[in-house]
Simulated scan of single mutants.
Amino acid sequence: MRSKVVLARLVRNRQARYGSIALLLLVLLAYVGPFFGQYEWTDKDFMAFLSPPSADHWWGTTTIGQDMYAITLRGMQKSIIIGLLTALIATTLAAIVGAFAGYFGGWVDRVLMWGVDLLLVLPSFLIIAIVSPRLKNASWLWFVVLLAVFAWMITSRVVRSMTLSLREREYVQAARYMGIPQWKIIFRHVVPNLSSLLIIDATLNVSGAVIGEAALSFFGFGIQPPDVSLGTLIAEGARNATGYPWLFVFPSGMLVALVLSINLIGDGLRDALDPGSNT
């Protein structure tokens, strides 16, 4: 019943509708669009260096003759995957650490929250900038892990505070008296009741990870050549933004549209899952 109410609120929310439509179109463009292009993202046209948008190259070409349409969509694919994986890892960490700390209390709470406080004071951008160059020959998944490690601490504190209240509820007490293992109680009774917070957090973490990846890649600390992301394309295009604007406009436009659509969905989810929202 609650899921139907939430879905009805979400459908009525104008921001969520527009954001969902925009995100769907962007995902289709990223993953289906390359099939309609004339070039692969690895192709080079040695007769068209820095060519402006034309019938042959819809979004122009790069300094080495790569098709901007193909390479921008490739970059958007990578940014979407990084955003989703980072959000999944970060939200899972926040749920587990916060729920265990709040449920068990005592020394478990102190140790886990000490780790959270330590990560909060560490300069995440500086650490990633130092570590990522050492992973140039490693899988880009390590970059996802680095982003996720510094994206969950604040949410874990919110989860902890909510768990302190949930652990005193009658159904949790009943499960404890029935002898159900405590870890099962956490995953069956505590975490599901935090789903509203976790869904919103995961949605917003996607946009945060996309922006974080773009910022790090802009400074050369993210995705490494020959692969590309929106951040690496924006960094390359910024050098020639005045003389060859298509190098900058298309990847930056895709980044803005992607982040904006995700944030609109996140705002809509927040309103739909808020018990105080108008029905």
Rank of each mutant, 00 (worst) to 15 (best):
residue 229 S to Q: 07
residue 199 I to A: 08
residue 245 P to D: 08
residue 135 L to T: 15
residue 202 A to I: 00
residue 174 A to V: 13
residue 190 V to I: 13
residue 208 G to Q: 11
residue 212 G to Y: 08
residue 155 T to I: 09
residue 200 I to G: 07
residue 194 L to V: 00
residue 155 T to H: 03
residue 173 Q to P: 00
residue 246 W to K: 09
residue 196 S to P: 11
residue 145 V to Q: 11
residue 143 F to I: 02
residue 207 S to K: 06
residue 210 V to K: 04
residue 134 R to F: 15
residue 157 R to K: 15
residue 215 A to C: 11
residue 245 P to S: 07
residue 240 N to G: 00
residue 216 L to Y: 09
residue 197 L to E: 01
residue 238 A to G: 01
residue 150 F to K: 09
residue 133 P to N: 13
residue 209 A to P: 05
residue 200 I to M: 12
residue 180 I to D: 04
residue 146 L to I: 07
residue 205 N to L: 13
residue 159 V to H: 03
residue 211 I to T: 14
residue 140 W to F: 14
residue 182 Q to D: 15
residue 186 I to E: 02
residue 186 I to L: 08
residue 162 M to Q: 15
residue 221 F to C: 03
residue 215 A to Q: 13
residue 160 R to I: 04
residue 174 A to N: 12
residue 234 I to F: 07
residue 183 W to C: 05
residue 200 I to E: 09
residue 182 Q to F: 06
residue 227 D to A: 14
residue 132 S to R: 08
residue 177 Y to F: 12
residue 198 L to Q: 08
residue 173 Q to D: 06
residue 147 L to A: 02
residue 238 A to H: 06
residue 247 L to R: 08
residue 155 T to F: 00
residue 135 L to Q: 12
residue 168 E to F: 08
residue 164 L to G: 05
residue 175 A to I: 10
residue 172 V to P: 06
residue 231 G to H: 00
residue 150 F to N: 12
residue 160 R to D: 02
residue 221 F to M: 03
residue 144 V to E: 10
residue 166 L to R: 00
residue 202 A to S: 13
residue 240 N to C: 02
residue 154 I to V: 14
residue 232 T to D: 01
residue 162 M to F: 07
residue 166 L to T: 05
